[in-house]
């Protein structure tokens, strides 16, 4: 599998979340994703970007276009060096929130994509990688 193209973006503010959504939308369109799949990816990206702003103290997203023999995909890697998540399983549970949200962002993002990986170390930060195939 080859990374055809990639881009890194800063995520610090609410404006950046909007820009990340716009960028992911543009990439998904370029890769030929259907409207439903574009929407799912953009929404998952919005959740993870907002978590970075709300809890991670700012961070980055790396957007990668993937290509292998049979399929094309979009991979997004969200990374921050914030406080990290003590218990990832709990954080993923629907309704769990420490910030007065709905507590659906992480779990929802996982359901909106094909591959979901989260690595978090307390005090060191959080990295969430999601992939959706076309």
């Amino acid at each position: 599998m080859a990374v055809v193209k990639h881009e890194t973006r800063e995520i610090r503010s609410a404006e950046d979340i909007v820009l990340v959504r716009q960028a992911v939308r543009a990439w998904a369109i370029e890769l030929g994703f259907r409207l439903v799949d574009q929407t799912k990816l953009v929404t998952a990206a919005s959740e993870l970007a907002r978590n970075i702003v709300d809890y991670g103290g700012g961070g980055t997203v790396v957007i990668e276009a993937l290509n292998d023999a049979e399929r094309r995909g979009l991979r997004l890697r969200f990374e921050d060096h914030g406080p990290g998540i003590e218990d990832v399983d709990t954080a993923l549970r629907d309704g769990y929130t420490t910030g007065g949200g709905l507590g659906l962002g992480l779990g929802g993002a996982r359901r909106l994509v094909n591959e979901f990986e989260i690595v978090s170390a307390p005090g060191r930060g959080t990295r969430v990688t999601i992939t959706r195939w076309r």
Partner: peptide, 13 residues
């Protein structure tokens, strides 16, 4: 819209 409806369901809202 249809795509929004599907996304909302997956989010669990």
């Amino acid at each position: 819209r249809p795509q929004i409806a599907q996304t909302i369901v997956h989010l669990g809202v």
